[in-house]
Design a protein around this nucleic acid. Structure first.
Lengths: 164, 164
DNA sequence: ATCGTTGCAAACGTTTTGCATAAGG
DNA sequence: CCTTATGCAAAACGTTTGCAACGAT
């Protein structure tokens, strides 16, 4: 779940790629943007804006980058193809896109954990379905909800007292 | 895309089913709830809270049902198995669940139209993938994003001037 | 009579905005 | 120097909540 650069050729680092994007749009290389690229790609986990802000180092008691700038920059990362985003429980969740293979997610309704999986067959089926409907696919988002293995076991042991 | 009651046995109307649910939880039959069941099942389209409120008849200039009650009732419909919900562009979107077969969606990034499709093979693949990961499936949500046939044609005619 | 339900207004959490200042090109 | 980027504070957005009045059982 953490191996990167697998099926995808990567010639540039995320930062290089982002700076190319900035250049192509006449935008500027700033310390905040550089810093956020670094932070975002320093670990491969799903995160939302708050989680990112929380783990930013602070200069004094202030965060290194302001909240609005984090939001603005996350949008740019998505535009630039560095990140993908989706919505979960009313928040935007981000994950690596650049240099990371296509995948989908299990979402455990007990522990609220997102787990990745890859399936080439699924992508093929998606493309076939789309072809049949004359729909030009750009991407997709699949989340399978249910109960993960760990939670299944845990609950079974204490004789199922769940509700949700 | 509009045919209902296809693969699913339906012995009760949505209202009957909902009233059974209310009974089972010691909740009450109110005019607002009855009214909203009727509205929600009077047409088979995806909708969000605002769209529902907008199309509610009004008594005078007031809506028949207040906004908080609409939100509360939509939640109950989901609990009762009448509706399913998902998030799109920061809003909760609802669709019929009761008496309506499982399906997924195309989302056109040009016209922002949601279109349904059904695929039994897809569900089987989902189940197989989940089995392999020892994940107990409850449901899933798949949205295939791209450009629908209509928009493809429309755009091609004026030589692609798209960005998104 | 009890207790769930409603509508109102106000709060909520997340994200976005206007604007003055700072800083990249 | 010109223009984009930033941070602040405030607004915006969809949704939820506390509470008093209401209404179903």
């Amino acid at each position: 779940m953490a191996e990167q650069l697998d099926n995808v050729e990567v010639s540039q680092s995320p930062l290089e790629r982002f700076e190319e994007y900035l250049l192509s749009r006449g935008l500027r290389k700033t310390e905040q943007r550089r810093f956020l690229v670094e932070q975002v790609f320093s670990q491969h986990e799903h995160f939302d804006a708050d989680q990112l802000i929380d783990r930013l180092p602070r200069k004094g008691s202030e965060s290194y980058v302001s909240r609005p700038t984090v939001y603005r920059t996350l949008k740019e990362f998505v535009d630039a193809g560095l990140l993908r985003s989706f919505e979960l429980n009313g928040r935007s969740v981000y994950e690596h896109d650049y240099g990371y293979p296509e995948h989908d997610h299990f979402y455990c309704v007990k522990c609220h954990e997102l787990t990745e999986f890859q399936s080439e067959a699924l992508v093929q089926m998606r493309d076939e379905i789309a072809r049949n409907h004359r729909f030009r696919v750009r991407s997709h988002r699949l989340i399978i909800q249910g109960v993960c293995h760990d939670c299944s076991n845990r609950r079974n042991q204490r004789r199922q007292q769940d509700r949700v």
